[in-house]
Amino acid sequence: MTEPSEHQDISGDTTRKQAGKPHYAGHRDRLRARFREAGPEALADYEILELLLFRALPRRDTKPVAKALLTRFGSLSGVFGASAKRLTEIDGIGQSVASELKLFQALAARLGKHELQQKPLLSSWNSVLDYCRTTMAYEEREQFRVLFLDRKNRLIADEVQQQGTVDHTPVYPREVVKRALELSATALILVHNHPSGDPAPSQADIDMTGRIAEILTPLNILLHDHIIIGKHGHASFKAMNLL
């Protein structure tokens, strides 16, 4: 019997490998190529999410998983803002994949914070709003944070002061002011989220902000704004003439 040639061996091996490839292998290659050649604007949201899931799910078709995530959480922001526990409710998403998705949210927040630290906040207000939306819009509990600024309105510190329930966060004005003095801050921006999605301030929000402003005034510390973040928008006390 004649031995097969080297060419025949390679050809046969290639055919067997191709036959054994999962159906989505070619799709992954094409999607990566389209991203490289045409950029992210050429991809739908679920395709961007697919690309991110390729590494976390190397042996699974990621398209149905990506579409299921977007259906459940509504948007890319909703997906990355969802808790790890809620992410694992989606078929195909285990703890390790949920951690990968939360890592991308942490990276986006870290990049946003770095951008804020490079210039005065009042001259980059859209960056402030983007950062707050990234870090807080999809939190399932109310979170109250303070941006502490120096005399040039540059960020000294960004600190979460309190975590609350789905509709309430206890805020202690004197603790906020005490921390501002410890950091030698000369201005503050207050931020909290409304998990309900509606950013309209409550009377309790208005009263609390007034108490903080009252304590800050004799100390020559400015309160630039109090921003409430919702899933689909924000409210600014300054813009609403509440400050």
Rank of each mutant, 00 (worst) to 15 (best):
S5F: 14
E6Q: 10
Q8W: 04
I10V: 15
T15N: 13
K17T: 14
Q18F: 15
Y24C: 06
A25K: 10
G26D: 14
G26N: 15
H27I: 15
R28S: 03
R30H: 06
A33P: 07
F35N: 09
R36A: 10
G39P: 03
L43A: 08
A44C: 14
L53I: 11
A56Q: 14
P58T: 12
R60D: 12
D61S: 09
T62N: 04
T62W: 02
V65E: 06
K67L: 09
K67F: 09
S75Q: 08
S83W: 03
D91G: 09
I93H: 10
Q95F: 15
S96I: 15
S96M: 15
Q105V: 10
A106I: 09
A108V: 09
A108W: 04
A109G: 11
G112F: 04
G112C: 05
Q117H: 14
Q118C: 14
K119I: 10
S124G: 14
W125N: 07
V128Y: 02
Y131I: 06
R133W: 11
T134W: 05
Q143P: 08
F144S: 11
L149G: 05
N153E: 12
A157Y: 11
D158W: 06
V160A: 09
T165I: 09
H168G: 10
V171G: 06
P173W: 01
R174Y: 13
V176Q: 01
V177D: 07
S184A: 12
T186D: 14
T186L: 09
I189C: 00
I189Y: 00
I189T: 02
L190E: 03
N193T: 03
P195C: 03
S202G: 03
Q203M: 07
D205N: 02
T209S: 07
P218N: 01
P218G: 06
L219V: 00
L219P: 00
L222M: 11
L223T: 01
L223K: 00
L223E: 01
I228D: 01
I229H: 00
S236G: 01
L242K: 02
